[in-house]
Computed example of a mutant assay.
Amino acid sequence: MTEPGRRIAPSRVRADIAHNARVWNYWLGGGDNYPVDRAVGDRVTGMYPSIGEVARADRAFLGRVVRHLAGDVGIGQFLDIGTGLPTADNTHEVAQHTAPDARVVYVDNDPIVLAHARSLLTSSPEGASEYIEADARDPERILSAAGRTLDLRRPVVVMMLGILNFVLDTEEARGIVAKLMDALPSGSHLVLTHPTLELGGEGNEAAMRFWNENATPPITARSRFEFASFLDGLDILEPGIVSCSRWRAGAGGRTPEVAQFGAVGRKP
Rank of each mutant, 00 (worst) to 15 (best):
T45W: 07
P256D: 06
V177G: 05
E130P: 00
N33Q: 07
W211L: 02
I112Q: 13
G29Y: 00
F166L: 12
E257H: 10
K179H: 11
R154S: 15
G74R: 02
S11M: 10
I112K: 04
R153S: 15
T122M: 05
A57Y: 01
P35C: 07
V44H: 04
G84I: 09
S223P: 01
K179E: 15
L152R: 03
T98E: 15
P155V: 12
L28F: 05
R38N: 04
G147I: 02
M47Q: 13
V191A: 00
T91S: 08
D232L: 06
L231Q: 04
P10T: 05
L164T: 10
L164F: 10
G201R: 10
H189W: 08
L164N: 09
W211R: 01
F61A: 11
I132S: 00
G46E: 10
E213C: 05
G162S: 14
R246K: 12
E3I: 11
A55F: 08
T83F: 03
A207H: 03
D80I: 01
P256I: 08
S119H: 15
F225G: 12
G250Y: 06
L79E: 01
A57L: 04
V158R: 06
A146E: 03
A134H: 03
S223A: 11
F166P: 07
R174G: 04
D32V: 12
P239E: 04
C244T: 08
M159G: 05
A221C: 14
A88W: 03
I81D: 07
T91W: 02
A145M: 13
A215W: 01
E172Y: 02
G71M: 02
Q260W: 13
L161Q: 15
P100H: 00
D42I: 03
V113P: 10
D232A: 15
F230S: 00
I112C: 09
R103I: 09
D58Y: 04
N165W: 12
T196S: 06
E126I: 00
T122K: 05
R43I: 02
Y48G: 08
V40E: 01
P49M: 04
D169A: 00
S188A: 06
A206E: 15
A9L: 12
S243A: 14
L150A: 01
G201Y: 13
R7G: 00
D89G: 03
Q96M: 13
A115H: 07
A95V: 13
I241N: 09
N214T: 10
T216N: 12
V191M: 07
A263Q: 02
F78C: 02
E205G: 13
L161F: 08
G74V: 01
R103D: 00
D32L: 07
L184T: 01
V23G: 04
R141C: 08
Q77A: 00
L192W: 10
H68L: 11
G41P: 09
L143W: 00
V40R: 00
L231A: 06
R154D: 15
P125G: 01
V242T: 09
N25I: 10
E238V: 12
D101V: 03
H116M: 12
I176R: 05
P185C: 04
G52I: 13
T170H: 13
I241L: 05
